[in-house]
Simulated assay, not measured.
Amino acid sequence: MAKHTGLAVEKRDFSKNPRQLRAEGKLPATVYGHNFDSVSLQLDEKAFSMAYKGDKTVILELKGDGDTYNALVKHVQSNAITDEIYNIEFYNVKTGEKLKVSVPVAIVGESPAVKAGGILRTPQSEIEIECLPKDIPSVIEVSISGLENLEDTITVGDIKYPAGITPVSAEGILIVKVSSPTAGAAAATTSTEVAGLAKK
């Protein structure tokens, strides 16, 4: 089930530029959506960080000036070095309208192949799905208990999804693979050799 968290917002004060807002501890933001007129807002930076916590699946209830918007965080523009947030884009969600969202993968269970010495590799950490807002899961659980042999894999199409959830990511995308220890060692050796050649 989708998580909901309240967050106070204000209508955007365009008499101040984004840098001035950030100096006051506030962030400029935009809410947009399907058949929805975009709205410019501003909100407290610390309150946003506490409510969001990097979770793309949480529905934020943006409340202020008599209006309420249920929204997902679609994009956070920030400085790659300092992590300072510049701007936020929210997507307005509607109760009966399906939407697409990327959900983290959670590995569960134990793999016999891994217990026997295989190396578990997880090249993909998220899966894009489509569902109603009320059905957004916090994670997609992927059981590895069926991985009994080296080179066994799990793709997007192999996963059993909860009712109401349809994967959007291509079925063939690799989520989990059990590699042999020798393959891992060979890859590490190759990387070391390449690094050594680069220094010459």
Rank of each mutant, 00 (worst) to 15 (best):
E141G: 06
K134V: 11
P162D: 13
S125F: 07
I154V: 12
S145Y: 10
P162A: 09
L120A: 05
L132P: 08
L132I: 12
I129R: 00
E148D: 15
A163H: 08
L120E: 00
P162G: 06
I119M: 14
A116H: 06
S169Q: 11
V176T: 13
G164Y: 06
I175T: 12
V176A: 15
V178P: 06
I119L: 09
K134N: 10
K177Y: 03
V139A: 01
A185M: 12
Q124G: 12
P162S: 12
E148P: 00
R121I: 14
L150C: 00
S179C: 10
I129V: 12
S145K: 13
K134Y: 07
I129Q: 00
Q124P: 01
P123C: 08
T182L: 10
T166Q: 07
P181T: 04
G117P: 09
P162R: 04
I136T: 07
K160H: 09
I165F: 09
P123D: 06
G172P: 00
I173L: 11
Y161I: 05
I154E: 00
K134T: 13
V114Q: 14
T122W: 02
G157I: 10
G146A: 11
V142Y: 10
S180F: 03
Q124N: 14
A185I: 14
S125G: 03
D152H: 08
E130K: 15
I127G: 10
S138K: 01
V178H: 11
Q124E: 08
D135H: 13
I129L: 00
I119F: 06
Q124S: 13
S125C: 10
E128I: 11
G117A: 08
K134S: 15
I129W: 01
A113L: 07
E130D: 06
E171F: 03
V114T: 07
D135V: 10
I136N: 11
E126Y: 15
K134L: 13
V139F: 04
A113H: 06
I165N: 04
C131R: 09
T166H: 09
A183M: 09
E148A: 15
